[in-house]
Design a protein around this nucleic acid. Structure first.
Lengths: 127, 127
DNA sequence: TATTACGTTGACGTAAACGTCAACTTGGTT
DNA sequence: AACCAAGTTGACGTTTACGTCAACGTAATA
């Protein structure tokens, strides 16, 4: 497989492999307005910017963002303009993700504690 | 509203209020085998253990667990037995949650950096 | 007694993010 | 020429976690 510098051109299955997703997913993202690759006839050609965009989409997914939310982020980067309103919206979303993260951290700690207690009780019964 | 000690008995809407969910959700959890409240005639009565179970369910949700996954955790606690296999499964799931957490932490850091860069570029253009 | 609040059981609807065909085209290979 | 791999466009199916009626029961209250 080729390296990925800023001049590389990818086919749809190239990208699918690199990101471990299906081509169906990639086409779906396009239909939802998150990607807009060039065409060579009817075939899609993906460039570096599309690669970056896909990375954004998947990062968003890991943070629990919807595709609609990631689309805003992508549009913001794509526009090159200073849409202060959109910027604030995205920033807020990142902060929300961060707060969810803190909550989850707390949840995991408690879960581990309770699992420990459970084990302890079980061991106690065995004696 | 009453305090919640270990003797309190709740109606379905009591619980719904406390956890800020709908009664529909609570009934759904029961139909999925996560709750099994007593009955007074046809009405459901929830006790302290049901309260605890609901707390587990919602904690699981925050961590991205499916109801089926939370059900395993609940069954484990409920059985009081030492099902080592089930224990391992649950433990693994907690570890997975923790790894996802680390990944998310990383993702958020990068997002914030890229937002910063974006702002900087925009400011540069404005000059 | 009529109303109101709260509860119950079906049954069908919904949204998001794809999966899974089917039918077809295109370009390169044997 | 025949074939295969890879790509394309519909179109319908799937899953999870409920939402949203409808139709009914029950208990307290005005």
């Amino acid at each position: 497989m080729m390296k990925n510098d800023k001049t590389t051109i990818y086919t749809i299955s190239d990208l699918a492999q690199r990101f471990d997703i299906t081509t169906r997913a990639i086409r779906f993202y396009e239909s939802e307005g998150l990607l807009s690759p060039e065409r060579d006839g009817q075939k899609r050609l993906y460039r570096h910017k599309d690669y970056i965009t896909l990375k954004l989409i998947l990062r968003g997914k890991r943070l629990g963002w919807s595709l609609a939310e990631s689309r805003e982020l992508i549009q913001m980067y794509g526009s090159g303009k200073n849409n202060q309103e959109q910027y604030q919206k995205v920033l807020e979303k990142v902060q929300e993700s961060r707060e969810r993260l803190e909550q989850q951290k707390h949840d995991i700690e408690i879960m581990l504690m309770e699992l420990d207690e459970h084990e302890a009780r079980v061991q106690e019964v065995l004696k």
